[in-house]
Design a protein around this nucleic acid. Structure first.
Lengths: 134, 134
DNA sequence: TATTTTATTTAAAACCATTCTAATCTACTT
DNA sequence: AAGTAGATTAGAATGGTTTTAAATAAAATA
């Protein structure tokens, strides 16, 4: 994605195209699905010679999430993941190396789910398949 | 559960029946399914007039888990839950009040799961159904 | 373009659930 | 009863994440 395309993408989502956001967006939205944590992204940023603070990485990840560009995956393992695949889907969690692998939503069929408690509405169904070496 | 039954339970699992463990075990294993966090348990303990440290609550919850008396549920919401239901099962997470509700394993059928990655073994499948008010 | 306004970035401090430390205490063994 | 291995504890440390408040940069206005 060119810098100008990245700029457009940011503007389309109401985000000012700052140097930092452009750098992060071009790392993240290269067309390949990507799972990042704040720390892993910080290392990628560092490896590409860009300098920006960890606070900005957190801010930006949350802003991208609010804008619908990322999906936040809390609670799998101890750190928060951000996924460029914003469609509903599930995950393998490889606990031996703490990596996530996408499982398409279509790959899993859930039947016989009990009745939703009164006054409540289902907001999402998440399946985590934990893997170990073996 | 009487104190002597609690003592037996602890001994059967290789745990010394200390005052603290007996107190926690009798709160937890009253026959009703229970979801606790370290903090929620601390408050129950406090309410029953027992005095013990938060470190002991954490220690004990982990020891009970290691002994197979509890199941640890990491990653749903920001805190670690401990569940007296040690059978394989799933959860509703009511995000409006951060409560968990059990879903029996038999209530959910998963089909079409993709092939497990080479060299890996499935260690558990966890389904989280997020609820909101509405 | 210069100026003003508003949003963004940042380093450092704060936060908070959880774990660790190391001193004290308690249950079990002999 | 004495010894020892295990348990408890207060308080410090940890680590991912958030907040703060000051500096900077982008957009709007003149």
């Amino acid at each position: 994605m060119t810098a100008s395309q990245t700029t457009d993408l940011l503007r389309q989502h109401g985000l000012r195209p700052t140097r930092q956001r452009i750098a992060l967006a071009s790392l993240l939205f290269d067309g390949h699905p990507r799972h990042v944590t704040a720390e892993s992204l910080k290392e990628q940023v560092k490896a590409s010679g860009i300098k920006l603070s960890l606070a900005t990485i957190y801010n930006t990840l949350h802003q991208f999430t609010a804008a619908g560009l990322l999906k936040e995956i809390k609670g799998i393992s101890d750190v928060t993941w951000f996924d460029t695949n914003i469609n509903s889907h599930h995950h393998f969690l490889d606990t031996s190396n703490n990596h996530l692998i996408d499982i398409p939503a279509s790959s899993i069929t859930i039947t016989n789910l009990p009745k939703t408690p009164a006054g409540k509405v289902i907001n999402g169904v998440e399946v985590i398949v934990r893997l170990t070496d073996g």
